[in-house]
Nucleic acid binder design. Structure first.
Length: 275
DNA sequence: GCCCAGGGTGCGC
DNA sequence: GCGCACCATGGG
């Protein structure tokens, strides 16, 4: 059983962070959150400034939840009007998680044009069909499928996972990435715009999914994913310039210029406070 | 039956 | 480069 005691000024809200829709494999049972990250089962709870967990080392937990990022400074950097300010208050302690790149990529490929419960169901299906069985405290869990396993996945088994038309995208992108050694490091080194181009060259990864992956796996916080919720929120509350770019680029570029280098963080607060 | 959801692709213009 | 039909799937 590991423990981390947060400093008084080290703001963090585990509930908000895990339930805001950035990750899909966590569920809360009583006071405990239980989730699978890659091939590890992690159980964690928060009591005030204390995090208690099993299944991972303190350094993993720190890195996964990005506990050493200066959240107060990040929020201050984009807290520039009453509307976003309300969102930051409603979702106080929300941190952007650092997800494994492969898992994040496939997850957001599965997430297109779907609601969150559907995405969770798909990913759970993929894990059950193609992931390693992990026994944790007497219960079976399934790790996130590895690239080479998904590469050889047959269509009929894949169909069980209810991916719909995304199944073909998943097969192609899986093969591409399984053959592309060092793709993660390459993207990590590239600046935002170029990294985004590489991700968008993958089948089934468009502007929105690419931005999610850059934000949630690569810590490129200028990425500003625009889904239907964010599009509504942004056009409803902000004066988006009417240049000739596509609507996605209009909103996304405006947000970067307006909110600054942590625009993606602002997006997450807006998304979390959407209802 | 309809509309919607953390959209992407491929086409015609 | 932009707009638009189409794409499976389940829930409301």
């Amino acid at each position: 059983m590991g423990t981390i005691t947060l400093d008084r000024d080290q703001e963090f809200n585990l509930d908000t962070t895990l339930s805001c829709g950035q990750v899909f494999r966590w569920t809360k049972v009583g006071a405990w959150w239980c989730g699978v990250v890659g091939d590890r089962v992690l159980k964690i709870r928060q009591d005030g400034q204390t995090l208690t967990f099993t299944g991972a080392s303190p350094s993993f937990v720190r890195s996964y939840f990005q506990l050493d990022a200066d959240l107060a400074a990040i929020v201050r950097s984009f807290d520039r009007d009453p509307f976003i300010h309300t969102a930051t208050e409603r979702c106080r302690g929300l941190r952007i998680i650092r997800q494994p790149a492969w898992e994040c990529t496939i997850s957001y490929l599965c997430a297109t044009n779907s609601n969150i419960p559907m995405v969770r169901q798909r990913i759970e299906g993929l894990a059950r069909q193609f992931g390693r069985e992990l026994t944790f405290e007497g219960t079976s869990y399934f790790g996130f499928p590895r690239p080479h396993v998904l590469t050889s996945a047959c269509a009929t088994t894949l169909a069980v996972c209810k991916l719909g038309y995304r199944a073909a995208y998943l097969s192609e992108t899986t093969s591409t990435l399984a053959a592309a050694r060092g793709w993660e490091e390459k993207i990590r080194m590239l600046p935002y715009a170029e990294a985004r181009g590489v991700l968008m060259s993958l089948r089934g990864i468009g502007p929105k999914a690419a931005d999610c992956i850059l934000l949630f796996a690569f810590q490129k916080y200028e990425a500003f994913p625009v889904d239907v919720w964010i599009r509504r929120i942004m056009s409803g509350h902000y004066a988006i310039p009417r240049d000739v770019k596509s609507e996605y680029e209009r909103i996304s570029r405006f947000a970067r210029a307006y909110f600054g280098p942590f625009a993606g963080y602002a997006q997450e607060y807006l998304y979390c406070a959407r209802k």
